[in-house]
């Protein structure tokens, strides 16, 4: 699926659209950044409640293409601006990580 499908097909709120035309082939769900860093696959969407600048840093270093913030957690401006710099799209939903994960999974090739 394309990154933009997170809002086009799943209706999630798009906060940063920088990587919207990129392809994602996997997802990873975790709130532990070390776990994300060590185990998340590249070209994936990270499903998490960690909404801050360090999430973007980890995503960028791990080659993650998009971040999906769950439980409608607020995303600080600093996070969104560094996501723009690192060309990582950010989405938000009221779904929790479990629900978001199976919804995203249904759209992954």
């Amino acid at each position: 699926m394309k990154v933009k499908d997170l809002s086009d097909k799943l209706g999630y709120e798009c906060l940063v659209s920088e990587s919207n035309n990129e392809e994602i082939s996997e997802g990873y769900c975790s709130d532990l950044l070390s776990d994300v860093m060590g185990n998340a696959p590249e070209d994936s969407v990270l499903i998490t409640i960690q909404a801050h600048k360090n999430t973007v840093a980890v995503a960028s270093l791990a080659g993650i293409k998009a971040i999906l913030i769950c439980n409608n957690r607020p995303a600080p401006e600093g996070m969104l601006s560094s996501a723009t710099d690192e060309e990582i799209s950010v989405f938000r939903t009221k779904d929790n990580q479990f629900t978001a994960s199976w919804k995203v999974h249904a759209h992954l090739a």
Binding site: S34, D35, Q50, N54
Partner: peptide
């Protein structure tokens, strides 16, 4: 913040 998982 998502750190301190003992995985570093």
């Amino acid at each position: 913040l998502g750190f301190g998982a003992g995985m570093g």
